[in-house]
Every structure is written in C-alpha cells, then in structure tokens.
Design a binder for these strands. Structure first.
Length: 214
DNA sequence: CACCAGGCAAGTA
DNA sequence: TACTTGCATGGT
C-alpha cells in the first residue's frame, strides 16, 4: 500500500474513533498565538491557568502585554512553567508583530506562507512547531504541525524512519495530503489526542486501541 | 518519590 | 555536524 493511502487511512481511523477535536482551544487568533508559545514542552492545563491570569489582568492583547514589565508578565504566566524564558519569548514575538505589522495579525496571514513562516522563525524563541501552530491554528493557513507525538506514533507504525527530522516529517504529510487547513488542523489534533491516551495507558497497542490492526 | 508535558536555543566536542 | 543541557510548574 502507498504511503499517501496509509496516511489517509490513519486519519480516517482516528477521526471515526474520536470525532472532531475542535482545535485550537482559544477564543481569538491572538489568544491562540500566545498559547502556542506558552505550551512549549508544557501541559495544556498549566497553560490554561496562565492564560486565565492574563485575561483576569486584562492583559490578553498585544498593546496590553507589551505595556507590562517583563517581570510582571513572568509573574502572570508562572503556572505555564519556564516563565522567565517564555516572558522574553512572548515579548520578542509581540515586538516583531508591532514593528513589522503594526500589531495586525491579518497582515502576517496575508503573506505567502513560506515568507510568513520565515518571519516567525526569525523570532528568538519561536521554532518550527510554534511557528506552524500559529500559522495553522491562529492564521488558518494550510501547514502541517509536527510534534513529539507525531514522531512517536509515526515511528511506531513504520510511517517514519529513524533519523527523520521535523521538516522531513512535515513534508511527508504535505506531499501526500491535499493542502487543506481543515484536514491539517484535525489530523494534528487527533494525533495529540491519541498520543495522550497512549501515554496514560503505557500500552501502545492495547486492546480496543483505535489503531488495533493498523 | 520519579516522571512527564502539544520546544527551543545555547553550549560542547 | 551531532549530542547535551537549562529552563519550571503542576498532575499522576
């Protein structure tokens, strides 16, 4: 069987088992973007608390966040962990958006996808996954997000070879699937959903597993 | 108690 | 180029 067919089959299995995931959790593109930085190597529950703190402080907007002293910003996002680091990373990102786009995210989405991605990657603290999450989930642009779960799940099912990096894996999806935002959104969300189930049970191929026999 | 969670950059050899 | 390490909270 062809690689593209297998990737499609994997998606169909997950979708039929779990249904739509309604990602990303977040009410506005700006909130989604902030969440993308805060969730780096961090449990979403902790990120959610940090975002609640920002909302409570009426600080969940670009001008409000930039007006905060870095120290104060760090205090608010404390539950998300790595708070000193993330306060700087958020500030780097917001400063770039204010400087290059007048703080208007729509202007970033309007750029050619490759260029928008490069602009994000140029920010210190924004790597490939964060950049792609922002483009896909905040900007609704058709780019596939790869994460730690993606590596594990695809590796386990011989859909990825040892030594493949982020870009390799991303291309593997994007070369074989139609460039549709809806599909990329749901596919990544489903991989995360499956990854969490597996982690908890510590049984990669358990009975009743949605991928039984895959 | 140990281990992990939707990464990234800087340092080392 | 290819590893390793620091960053930090909260849940299981």
């Amino acid at each position: 069987m062809d690689l593209g067919e297998r990737l499609d089959q994997l998606f169909q299995r997950l979708y039929r088992h779990y249904g739509p995931q309604h990602w990303w959790p977040g009410e506005t593109p700006f909130e989604v973007m902030v969440g993308a930085v805060l969730t780096q190597n961090t449990n979403w529950g902790n990120v959610s608390r940090a975002i609640d703190n920002l909302k409570q402080a009426k600080a969940l907007s670009l001008p409000a966040l930039l007006a905060l002293p870095t120290e104060e910003l760090a205090r608010l996002i404390r539950p998300a962990g790595y708070y000193n680091l993330k306060a700087r990373r958020l500030r780097n990102l917001l400063e770039m958006l204010a400087r290059d786009f007048g703080g208007r995210l729509e202007r970033l989405w309007e750029l050619p996808l490759d260029e928008a991605r490069q602009r994000l990657l140029a920010v210190k603290g924004v790597g490939p996954e964060t950049a792609d999450s922002i483009l896909l989930y905040a900007g609704q642009r058709p780019i596939f997000v790869v994460d730690a779960y993606t590596f594990r799940i695809l590796g386990r099912h011989d859909l990825a070879d040892e030594g493949m990096d982020y870009h390799d894996l991303q291309q593997r999806f994007m070369k074989h699937l139609p460039p549709e935002t809806r599909l990329y959104n749901e596919y990544h969300a489903l991989l995360v959903r499956l990854g969490k189930e597996r982690c908890k049970k510590k049984r990669p191929l358990c009975e009743g597993c949605p991928l039984e026999g895959f």
